[in-house]
């Protein structure tokens, strides 16, 4: 139920994001979700792609520091309070969210969001228990 996110270290230098995206494009890898965390001196690019293993290989071959992190993609009702419902479940069950961001595409009338938990397995169990819909790796590929 977990999906693979690729995390990439980026120096705060002009054109770095372009370089990475161009490399992925050249290798026929499609970005499904994307988020950049930035600090004064460096950034971390987090992406969900259609072919994670091929993406990591291409990045590493190019000398870019990248690693795979397990995240969970959750379908969120696209209505006011949709996200709140999920966050309430997680808070009540004491699940800690490190960070989260949205998908580029939408599946039907639901929004897709990526969650990074400190304890992924515990989070997945709780989400299942509350019948919250999780998108699988297969599901991401088919988007």
């Amino acid at each position: 139920m977990k999906i693979k996110q690729i995390s990439i270290f980026l120096e705060n230098r002009k054109g770095r994001l372009y370089d990475v995206c161009a490399l992925l494009g050249k290798n026929d890898i499609n970005i499904r979700a994307l988020n950049v965390a930035e600090t004064e001196a460096f950034g971390i690019l987090r992406i969900v792609v259609n072919k994670p293993d091929a993406a990591v290989k291409a990045l590493k071959d190019a000398g870019i520091v990248a690693k795979i992190t397990d995240v969970v993609a959750i379908e969120v009702d696209d209505r006011p309070g949709g996200l709140t419902d999920i966050l309430k479940v997680l808070a009540d069950e004491d699940v800690n969210i490190e960070y989260m961001y949205g998908f580029v595409e939408k599946s039907s009338d639901r929004a897709l969001m990526v969650f990074r938990f400190d304890d992924v397995d515990k989070a997945v169990n709780i989400l299942k228990k509350h019948s919250i819909k999780i998108v699988t790796e297969q599901g991401v590929r088919e988007l």
């Binding site: 996110q5 995390s7 270290f9 460096f42 971390i44 520091v65 990248a66 690693k67």
Partner: peptide, 18 residues
């Protein structure tokens, strides 16, 4: 230089290391 062993997807961990 950052290598894959030091790298984390979390800003706070990298900042901590720095």
């Amino acid at each position: 230089e950052v290598n894959s062993k030091m790298f984390s997807d979390e800003v706070k961990k990298l900042e901590e290391l720095r």
